[in-house]
Nucleic acid binder design. Sequence first.
DNA 1: TAATCCCGCCAGCGG
DNA 2: CCGCTGGCGGGATTA
Length: 891
Amino acid sequence: MAPKTPIKNEPVDLSKQKGCTPERNPITPVKLTDRPQPDPWTPTANLKMLVSAASPDMRDREKKKELFRPIENSEQCDTHDSLQYDMVDDCTIDEFEKQRPSRKQKSLGLLCQKFLARYPSYPLSTEKTTISLDEVASILGVERRRIYDIVNVLESLHLVSRVAKNQYCWHGRHNLRQTLKTLQEEGELQYGELMTFFHHKEQDLEYKFGERKKETIPDSQDRSLLDFSEPDCTSASANSRKDKSLRIMSQKFVMLFLVSKTKIVTLDIAAKILIEETQDTVDHSKFKTKVRRLYDIANVLTSLGLIKKVHVTEERGRKPAFKWIGPVEFPGKTDEPTGHSPTSNPLPRTQRGACAPYQICATGKQRFTRHASFNGAQPCEGTKRRVSSEPNSPHQERQACIVNSDEYCSKMINLAAVCRQKIEEDTGNKVCSAETILNSARNSSISSPLSPLPVLGDSDFCVNPLPQAVFPVVQADVSSLSLTNGIGSQPLHPSTPAASKTENGKPTLLPNQPFLCFPSSSLFMLCSGLQENNLRETLPITGEVGNRRAETQAPVPPATCQKRCSHKCASPSATADDEEPAAKKQNMEQSDVPLSLVVPKKPFESPKAEPTPRSGCMSAVHLEDFHLDLASPAAPEAVDKESTKLLDSQEQEKQSQNKDLDEHSPGKEHISKENASQPFLPQYLYVQPTAGVSSFNFLLSANQAAGAISLAASQVPSLSVPCVVVPSAALASFPLVCSPTITSPLSPVPDGSFSAPTSVNFSMSGLASTTPVFIGTTAVVAPKVSPTPSMDPQQPAHPSLHLSPVLARSCGAVKLDSPVCVGHPVTLLKLQQPSSAPLTPKSIRPACHEAFFKTPGSLGDPVAWKKNEGNQTRNASSVQRRLEISSTSAD
DNA sequence: TAATCCCGCCAGCGG
DNA sequence: CCGCTGGCGGGATTA
């Protein structure tokens, strides 16, 4: 009789009423509440009690008629317990109803978040955290069985490892990247082609799939690689069972994502693939079961911030799917060993593989990633066992590295051009709606500069409720924008009154001021005056990029391409981590989402840059890709001459290492991040807001023309790249202000507006103190900065100083006078914060919120933050086009 | 109705 | 035999 889902959860309410029923007291609503309860009660016990307490019938009745209290009397017939219950308190019922844990509240995803919240994403190497399943189960108020589900998935990613019966060891995400890399490599071997097919044509997929699967590498192989289970458990018997294990499935599922071009995998496809591997026959029931399991896994992965749910619309209709939002690039990728731009990347191969921390590696396909402490690319096998035995201090990693390559520069330039165009457009036509842009984009990249924008419309996932959907854009009036353009000459003065102040971290654009303020924790890419040529070229280039990609990776029909694009657009891969819903994310970022900056994807290929406006999918690429792609090889030249300025800054928040932070409400973070990632971003600016984050990275490109700034990337010493990467100061989120006052002696700007030297200031306000970063670029200076240096010890502790060693250095060297100034005047920051300029939508919010939400143990109301996400997502304003700023949503 | 996925039965396994 | 694991699929919830 008892409904399967009896009241268990309800006890929560009961607790309140304890007084009424002594009996009830014992019932503690553990589950719902995050607060761990020491009470001896096991979840089951609670359950039972509850069940006994209330009969399902009653509940139903109650549900149906909330108001129908009178029933109480009659209720007696049922269980006396129930009766008592009712009698006890009417209120109870209501609460009952209210609190009645909905299925969602009991979801595995939520449970997983709670679980994760208990452990630091990046535990200190010293601390060994052991997890007792029983303990956790009781604390979380669930059956142990559920914990197994979570742990199995976590184990597949090496976040935990089983040490003994009922005992697991928490490793955190230190080695997550490595693990993912390994999975990716393995995945490529196994599913590479397969996935290609899928993307190509779904239908064919299956078809092909059948063929393929046989060809695929024997399971044994992958097993070995992937097998995380204890080494010992090689026994056949054990394996048999383990093969089906959630663990394995989880790994395979992840592989599919990593191999997928679009990073989107539909459940049915995944199920089919997974089934195929195991068995040739796919019966319906099996399929269903597989899907169920995949949901379980997906829930955990979602909690980890690695994937998010999306919908893919295909010929057949709308299908549930998941999109990978975790790290995508892994240094030293096998497939394209040479992927690194040869020219730009001087680093010895070995190093690259190793990817020293701070160093960014670009892989052929992937963008670059910051690598934590992995030592070189290891053969899959080798890595396998490493689990996180050695904790690295990812925290330190945080700096950003600059990838230098001409290509890179060119790309940047292109981006800038695009941005500029956009801006111009906006300026010209305030009205342009995103849609319009989108459309144009779809139609042809060429036609409008905007085209590069990702096409959102295509797939549902674009629309996702996830934060990504909308960027809060800084709203700048056209006028303001124009100001920006014209201003170029103004050196950045921190003191400038104009400096927008961001009160709440809202980005502000002061009218007359050349400065823009963004909420802290955002990543920006700014572009200023580009020449027309560039712009034009850019578009085609962009398109090409897309194409190129397609070519490279797999032939994709235009339609497909578009989809892909949209997909990619939808979520900026770069931000992947951002998404993490779970509080954890903050920590993760350090390692996971290191500052991924731009990496020139294909240095070699750059030649292709010919402008061919073909496919509409230009920006489809993940953010990372995006950046890379955008830069067209050809661009560099133009850039130099054109004296375009590009400013790209990225900021990533690093969540405080503090565990406390972990607790933050992730939701907001994502949101903001998501927003940032929005399609637009790619074009001009990419903002990754991290909630309260502390560190962020910047990539700035100053004007190139005259004296392009040459950054000395460790790798590319002499590059004269207009870009500067600034490592973020770790802890504090700080506002960044950039005012590139570039005069563009070089740039003949056709567009009056931009061509002129433009000065743009961004200020990002972090939650708390923000260290203001002031960056001013004036034309020619080329301070050399080593990208890696972010860690610079030299830097004063001060946040402002923190900014980046690079910046600091540059600043020191250059100073205002110098073309590029990186200033850090605190004063500015302060000014900014108070900002009133509300140009930006309210949506933008400072990281502060997070703090708000963070509640240690309790995730707070997950629901609540989810809601936020949704809301935020939606807010996009035309303004966005110009600048996309992610912000945490308002509450 | 379809999509999700919670729940807990029950088998495999190791001690 | 017992308890830990975890595959599996019924069927409740949600969308």
